[in-house]
Design a binder for these strands. Structure first.
Length: 89
DNA sequence: CAAACTATTCAGC
DNA sequence: GCTGAATAGTTTG
């Protein structure tokens, strides 16, 4: 666990339900706008990916990027959260 | 400490 | 739209 990773987790955990942010955005919020790749690697190496909404983090091009359970699952999860948010609102 | 790796991003064609 | 190159931090030896 590193200070940067901690920040990244915090930022990612602050992403609203059903919303998605880019690695760049997360890196920016983490304080290292140029560490987008490091962020992705941290998320992939993160000890508890299920404690972190890493599925809400995607590429700046709109690409899903990657996910521990698979990109397809990531998409499904995002859609699910979108539906949940719709119900909550 | 140094080298290698990475779920990315930007620029050029 | 696709390919190539660059950047910064993490991890491992």
């Amino acid at each position: 666990m590193t200070p940067f990773a901690k920040k990244v987790y915090k930022v990612v955990s602050n992403i609203p339900l059903g919303e998605v942010r880019t690695y760049k955005w997360v890196a920016l919020k983490a304080g290292k706008p140029k560490a987008v790749r490091a962020v992705g690697q941290i998320l992939k190496n993160n000890p508890y990916p299920w404690f972190i909404p890493c599925h809400r983090v995607i590429c700046a091009s709109g690409d899903l990027g990657g996910y521990v359970f698979g990109k397809k699952k990531k998409k499904a999860l995002l859609d699910l959260e979108k539906q949940i948010r719709k119900v909550m609102v």
